[in-house]
Design a protein around this nucleic acid. Sequence first.
DNA 1: TGTATCCGATACAGCAATGTATCGTAGGCG
DNA 2: CGCCTACGATACATTGCTGTATCGGATACA
Lengths: 219, 219
Amino acid sequence: MADESGGHPGRTVGAVISPRRERTRGRLLDAAFDVFARHGVQAASIEAVCEAAGFTRGAFYSNFASKEELFLALTERQIRAQLTALEVATSDVQPAEVGTRDGIREAVRGIIASVLPDPAAAQSWSVMALEFELLALRDPQIAARYAEQQVRLRDELVGVLERLVGSIGLRFAVDPRTAVDLLLGAFETGQRTALLAGADDDRASVLIEALVDLLVTPA
Amino acid sequence: MADESGGHPGRTVGAVISPRRERTRGRLLDAAFDVFARHGVQAASIEAVCEAAGFTRGAFYSNFASKEELFLALTERQIRAQLTALEVATSDVQPAEVGTRDGIREAVRGIIASVLPDPAAAQSWSVMALEFELLALRDPQIAARYAEQQVRLRDELVGVLERLVGSIGLRFAVDPRTAVDLLLGAFETGQRTALLAGADDDRASVLIEALVDLLVTPA
DNA sequence: TGTATCCGATACAGCAATGTATCGTAGGCG
DNA sequence: CGCCTACGATACATTGCTGTATCGGATACA
């Protein structure tokens, strides 16, 4: 608590983070993603994460103060990846291709989907998102962090989607922020439903398409 | 695994469950709800649950074989309560009172809200729902159980809402099942957002009202 | 009131994970 | 090429939880 220098628990006092250290942290984060997804953040032992990463706990405690801190570093990396993916997906869409109503549906779904990257990893990803929400529901400090990330992401999405829809002379039937919340909610719900039902009937796409039809109207 | 008689781990072989036993189980379930909500299912020790219930672990192992079984009993109790609450909420609504568009919004929101009972316990409830989803995402057996409960609840909701909307000469703009999925998704998302943002700005209501306006159209 | 049985308490052995203190070495710098 | 520091490995003490085996008191029934 008396350490205000940025949060490294290790003995590093100087400013720079060595490349070696960076690699170690990366491997620990990768391993943590797998292990947390498989066993749950709380159930996963630090030991298990280290083993999966090919280290011993010595490495861990040299890089992170606690499992919680490791998890937060992980979410930080995730949100960065999401925002980057969003940018890429946005730049991929050519307004010219979005003329039809089908085009709009497809484009919006693509944009939304871009923030939930690889479908193969959808399961792990959903799990991590849920774990994050759970921790946040219990710990106000984590809640603040979670809220901040959500706001960043949603603001970004509001901008992107409004621009996209507007560029072809349409608009949202409701407050854009509400529209985004509805879309994201529908997507997450649909995805989880599909995952839990076992069947990959892509409930998410169904919901998104229905919603887009309802939400997007002539200006 | 060789026990097909219903699942009591204790020494009870006879058919009847004594009142005493029933009370003990009830207190254990109440305590489990609190402790699980506060610390998480995985992080919570059996010991902690017993202490909260005013028992020792002897009582626990006499009633449940494992923490997982306790949790499943808890969800079973919850779903029953939800379905009951839903019936009550439905019978409370008089079609005559739903004539206006505001009336519809209010009625639908009420119905939806009835399956997420006490707002004071909303936090704990959300936590438990998330925990359940997480366990289901990892364990196919639990997933099946989860899916079954969800289907029960949603089918019920589809029936109720379709009847409600139809009774005043309106209809859903999309497949009713899709409508229900969207509504529930919006509700959960909104509620969690509000909980995590700290502010009780009742985002859920905003989303629900917007959705109802979009979903409910003249027949 | 006496008795049999059910059920929760107690005691115990064992384990897995944690955090720290210390050590050895790899890698960057002169 | 050799030193020195950063960094990860190792060893150790501690802790809290688990599950079982056994015991004693409460409860129901005659």
